[in-house]
Write a protein that binds this DNA or RNA. Structure first.
Lengths: 352, 352
DNA sequence: GTGCTAATGAGACACGTGCCTCAAATCAAG
DNA sequence: CTTGATTTGAGGCACGTGTCTCATTAGCAC
């Protein structure tokens, strides 16, 4: 912590510069620069002397001046799927908001939509990027070998790559998104807690179970149900494949086949279609319904009591966090403070 | 949104400078400077010409260079209460984390503890600040006339002032913290939902009901209970005055006087003492307990099942948001994008 | 000592903006 | 037209750092 009292000391030097550093270490500014920017050809004890001076003076490099000198600026791209509904729209909207806010920091963002049905198209796009054009990419895409390779190659070309919302798990701890297993568990807890001992079965609706995100959510959901709510049983996942008719069909079938349904978990990020279908069906009033992500639709559903809880990740925070993280990677900040973890939000009627 | 295609246009000028602006507007750099910094003595049509050029070129002032030129740096103080328990400690810890992170942006933070029992001491402290020493203050203090006046005087002296966590309500819409009425309502909803129709009364424990924050929480809590959970009745607030013995006394008395207690709401930000006392008493197992704020203690209580839910505001976000907001005020950014609203977090066992 | 290499110093220029001074141009009123 | 005020231009210096070049020094082996 910087104390105001420091000003009273002998050599206060509120903001020491490289010049002060040079004087204190008894070297020239050129050498200070060599140490600061880890250039070759400096004897170890000289390096130590400079580092000691840095410590003692509490020198902090003026990044603004440094960026100015390097005329550094950042150009980031969000690579997002082409298809998608309201959640994706929220993300895009937040990116556009962020563009204005971050412009002051010389950060420029762009959105690029990739055909998520074609694994080749994304890797082709990523391969086309030059470090001249782009300093970093936030990638929202399902985990495939192609994408993994493309990400590795991006890094080789000195372009920051950051899995975004959709995790590329074992590849990198560095990503922005929530822990989907906990998210699933949270949905389960919400349902279980609201049912308070009532027994029955719970419907789980998903778009597809092939993605890592879906599997993790399902895993977390089941584990929580099995461990803490033995009176509930989770039915096999219904996969809609993004097809509205199919969704209606399988939902109707499941509901009529199971008379003891007490809860519904809409697991996919895009909840509008399943919820709209559910709305047309005749369901018991006290059914507990939980979905993911805050969108205009789910928000209204929550307000109207058509939904009991939402497990969400804040779109604005996701976007801003991704941008800051990308900047951190480019700046090679090691100790950029705590990783700004994206929290799993629980949204009820009262805390919208 | 900035499109990459712009590069292909006639005059791409990725990052136009004031020089480019001058050329485009057909004026000198001096005039551009006069317009940008709203100095006197420029004819209106000249101003318009420059502004038009700004629009057309998409000029964004390089704040880094500007700050460098002004050798601008920011010195913020967090004025926090002296007394306090784990929540306050969390805040202080997050401030210390933030100090490292924001140092790169020439932002220096300090913590100053004020005697919260003496309304004069805080106003005395605030009055002692000079715009030389300090560019902004985040103030966590109960709303009193003295504090209100001190804040107004701070602004007159060109020091940014920002109510922090504790709101100074009608004075200023600009503050950092949660909507306490919604926070209270959320606690009520959590309790009500988990009780699912069970009837009985709910104990409300507070440190003191004199602060605006407490009153708002209580109001929100009651409203939610009355509107949506008529089977529950909220008992009058128990005020501990931060006194452990008194707390134990009144808690025991209330618990023995009311046999139908089904829930407990610890309303104060510091939940440790009340919860520890509750732990020593013999309470029914299925009592629902909800408290505020995430601290090491409440976190463990949640994990151990000694607590069913937490209504919290993220300490790290509070701090970072306050710093960014203060910077925004100093920079006189009007359109700093959306106000980064502090969300009311619901924490359950699964989303810690 | 000589010669060679590695290490260091001295200095200059650039980055984009703020802020200053002084001169020149423009304008309005008489 | 002149006069005086208002508006604009030209230019320079500063901010702190990065990145060159070239000269100088220190250290080492022989």
């Amino acid at each position: 912590m910087i104390k105001i009292q420091n000003r009273m000391l002998q050599k206060p030097l509120l903001h020491p510069t490289t010049k002060d550093l040079a004087k204190a270490a008894g070297v020239s500014r050129a050498t200070v620069d060599r140490v600061l920017n880890r250039r070759e050809g400096v004897r170890k004890d000289t390096v130590d002397r400079v580092n000691k001076a840095i410590e003692e003076l509490g020198f902090v490099r003026n990044v603004q001046a440094a960026n100015l000198a390097k005329s550094q600026s950042y150009r980031f791209v969000f690579a997002l799927p082409k298809s998608g509904d309201q959640f994706l729209q929220e993300i895009v909207a937040k990116i556009e908001e962020a563009i204005d806010v971050f412009a002051a920091d010389r950060i420029w963002c762009d959105v690029h939509h990739i055909d998520d049905n074609d694994p080749h198209s994304i890797s082709a796009y990523l391969s086309s990027l030059t470090s001249e054009d782009v300093s970093g990419v936030a990638i929202m895409a399902q985990e495939t070998p192609q994408v993994r390779d493309a990400i590795i190659r991006l890094k080789e070309r000195n372009i920051a790559a950051l899995p975004f919302i959709s995790n590329q798990a074992p590849l990198n701890a560095d990503w922005v998104g929530i822990d989907n297993s906990s998210a699933g568990a949270t949905a389960a807890l919400l349902i279980g807690q609201s049912l308070r001992g009532k027994s029955g079965s719970v419907v789980v609706i998903s778009e597809s179970m092939t993605s890592r995100d879906s599997m993790e959510r399902r895993l977390g959901f089941d584990q929580e149900i099995n461990t803490h709510f033995p009176e509930l049983s989770a039915l096999p996942s219904l996969e809609t494949y993004g097809n509205e008719e199919r969704a209606e069909q399988i939902l109707k079938a499941t509901l009529s086949a199971n008379a003891d349904i007490v809860g519904i978990y809409v697991m996919s990020s895009e909840a509008r279609v399943p919820l709209q279908i559910l709305d047309t069906l005749q369901l018991p009033q006290d059914l507990i319904k939980v979905a993911h992500e805050r969108t205009p639709f789910t928000e209204n559903a929550l307000r109207d009591g058509k939904l009991d809880g939402l497990v969400a990740q804040d779109a604005g925070h996701l976007v801003r966090s991704a941008i800051r993280r990308l900047k951190g990677i480019v700046d090679k900040r090691r100790s950029a403070g705590p990783q700004e973890r994206i929290r799993i939000e629980i949204l009820l009627r009262t805390n919208l």
